[in-house]
């Protein structure tokens, strides 16, 4: 095969692969945007209208006016924010402890906890919260979300602390620092990128979680993902507001992905795991 021809085939193949790979993502997010900015007539038109003309904000107005959206947003912020905060406070030192004591067994335990389906924690926790009378409260949701945030933060922090040479802390210890001081003033500042990565990933997985709120959330305490699901089931399908709500729910996570892509990629390739 002549070199020029081979190069041409390579180039076409490359562009074709790029198109095949990227266009489905563009299609879905574009369609989400398009539905959310069109009126109901255009949304159910055939052939479909692709570009909103003129774009309308009515769907967004309806989301905020009719569906207690701000209440559910606040619930999501409290539950996810709380679970990430608690996860960091207890998960970062734990990652340090496990890394320094080289406890392979606890690392395996954390990995299995990361891999276990979220649903399987729900039956026992559901029964416990029922006995405690906490079904339908935000505290029950927050505690349950620790199932997501703690393992991922610990897992990522183990990796980061293992990469910080212990010699630095040994020097501090020889100079008379205690273990807490050498953690607080030597290891912790060096592990800051890991804390950011762990925090971001814990936030995303907790924010996206759906099933915990479906089972444990009440009418006024559910988080955004289960709230928009209920909009679909209890009201007649109205595509515009639904798409607008869906976009608003996933927007914080998408923005975070764009802003912190480097950190997320680093975290996922070291953790290599997702949640669910």
């Amino acid at each position: 095969m002549p070199v020029a021809l081979e190069r041409f085939i390579n180039r076409v193949g490359f562009l074709l692969s790029l198109f095949v790979l990227v266009s489905p993502a563009i299609l879905v997010f574009f369609w989400m945007l398009s539905l959310s900015f069109k009126n109901e007539v255009d949304n159910t038109a055939w052939p479909p209208v692709f570009v909103p003309n003129p774009p309308t904000m009515a769907n967004y107005v309806e989301v905020f006016a009719r569906n207690n959206f701000l209440l559910y947003l606040w619930n999501s912020i409290v539950v996810t924010g709380g679970a990430v905060l608690v996860g960091l406070i207890i998960g970062v030192p734990a990652g340090y402890g496990i890394a320094r004591s080289k406890s392979a067994k606890s690392a395996v335990l954390i990995l299995i906890a990361r891999m276990t389906p979220a649903l399987s924690y729900l039956i026992p926790l559901f029964m416990v919260f029922q006995v405690l009378g906490l079904i339908g409260t935000k505290s029950a949701l927050l505690v349950t979300h620790l199932v997501i945030t703690v393992p991922i933060i610990v897992w990522i922090m183990i990796g980061y602390f293992e990469n910080i040479p212990a010699e630095l802390e040994d020097a501090a210890l020889v100079d008379g620092a205690n273990t807490w001081q050498s953690f607080r003033h030597v290891a912790l500042p060096l592990a800051r990128p890991g804390i950011v990565v762990g925090g971001i990933l814990a936030f995303i997985f907790s924010w996206n979680n759906f099933i915990f709120s479906v089972v444990l959330g009440g009418k006024t305490t559910r988080t955004l993902p289960s709230a928009i699901y209920n909009v679909l089931t209890f009201e007649q399908i109205s595509w515009g507001p639904l798409a607008a709500a869906a976009l608003l729910v996933t927007l914080p996570v998408l923005l975070l992905t764009v802003i912190a892509q480097r950190e997320i990629v680093a975290g996922l390739s070291s953790g290599g795991l997702k949640d669910g």
């Binding site: 489905p24 993502a25 879905v28 997010f29 369609w31 989400m32 539905l35 995303i204 924010w207 996206n208 759906f210 955004l224 993902p225 289960s226 928009i228 699901y229 679909l232 639904l242 798409a243 869906a246 976009l247 729910v249 996933t250 996570v253 998408l254 975070l256 992905t257 997320i264 997702k274 669910g276």
Partner: peptide, 13 residues
């Protein structure tokens, strides 16, 4: 982006 997007939200779309 699909990997990060809220599964329920994109599932509805």
């Amino acid at each position: 982006m699909p990997m990060m997007a809220t599964p329920v939200a994109v599932a509805l779309v």
